[in-house]
Write a protein that binds this DNA or RNA. Structure first.
Length: 290
DNA sequence: AAGTGAACCTGAAGGC
DNA sequence: TGCCTTCAGGTTCACT
């Protein structure tokens, strides 16, 4: 589900809960999510103290003392819920509820982290497309999940020249190229649709048609950055029931101009169309996106 | 080699 | 009401 803005929102929500805390106990309710939890997962985390949190693409990285990192991916439906002494605090997509009597017994509560201040942090993931793995902090970028990830779209490395070089000779549709995490990190189906709509570029166009020096490429990158920043400010989107840290609903969904708007009017007078590209829905306006 | 589609898994929503 | 089909924010594997 979550794309870069939602993952960033969850990471920011986890920060005050986890920072400087020690994990005293780890409950694993099953042996795997997308893949098996690594050997020694529980033992490595128990007794470890959190130093910092980071995000890379759609991965949340929790750094501990002694060169240990926990890499988490929320997949499509992963969410964190913190139960503190004062009640339940939801960090991901969920609902807000209070009451210290809440327990971690939902059918898809797969991991429970018990912290040294009594807080329980629950990872819930119905579809189990999420992932958790351990890594060596000092060699984080060499981890198999992270080593081939491309540039962060909100960092300084994302430039038109970089993208043009990656798109050169690419016959894949622009939509597919933008979803490729090896080129730009963190873009997902929604924000790619929205950015292409804002940039008035057809998702079906071959990536290589945007060449070095083409102003439309600068324009597209500007829209990508803008849309991600706006979404982060809004606390992520609310497809279904995404919510920010404090139970406040993310409000970005209301601003979608193309995504999930099949048949509706585009501001240009055309109609939003839904097509399928590499197995995923693309929403765009054939009238103004060229 | 690159590009497309299927697979992974569960739940929600829509059609009949 | 209930059964069946389709679809979902992601990633990765297996084909052509």
């Amino acid at each position: 589900m979550p794309e870069l803005p939602e993952v960033e929102t969850v990471k920011r929500g986890l920060e005050p809960i986890l920072m400087s805390r020690m994990i005293t106990r780890v409950e694993l309710r099953r042996a795997n999510l997308r893949f098996a939890f690594p050997d020694g997962f529980v033992g490595a985390l128990e007794g470890s103290r959190v130093l910092s949190l980071a995000r890379r693409a759609k991965y949340i990285v929790i750094n501990f003392e002694h060169d240990l990192s926990l890499i988490v991916h929320l997949g499509m439906t992963g969410r964190f819920t913190a139960i503190t002494a004062s009640g339940k605090n939801n960090l991901g997509e969920f609902y807000f509820a209070t009451g210290s009597g809440m327990t971690a017994d939902g059918p898809h509560d797969h991991v429970v982290l018990h912290l040294d201040n009594g807080t329980k942090l629950i990872y819930n993931d119905p579809r189990r497309f999420g992932m958790m793995d351990l890594a060596t902090s000092s060699a984080l970028h060499e981890h198999r999940l992270l080593k081939d990830i491309g540039v962060e779209p909100l960092g300084n490395e994302l430039s038109a020249d970089y993208v043009a070089a990656k798109f050169k000779d690419k016959s894949a549709p622009l939509k597919a190229a933008l979803l490729d995490q090896r080129i730009i990190a963190g873009l997902g189906n929604i924000y790619v649709c929205e950015a292409l709509h804002r940039a008035k570029l057809a998702p079906t166009r071959k990536a290589r048609t945007l060449k070095r020096g083409d102003q439309r490429l600068d324009n597209l990158l500007r829209h990508i950055r803008d849309i991600l920043n706006e979404a982060i400010l809004a606390g992520g989107s609310t497809l279904q029931d995404f919510q920010g840290t404090d139970g406040e609903k993310g409000s970005y969904q209301q601003r979608f101009l193309a995504y999930d708007r099949e048949g509706e009017d585009c501001s240009c007078g055309g109609k939003i169309k839904r097509i399928v590209q590499s197995g995923r829905s693309t929403f765009y306006c054939p009238t103004c996106q060229k």
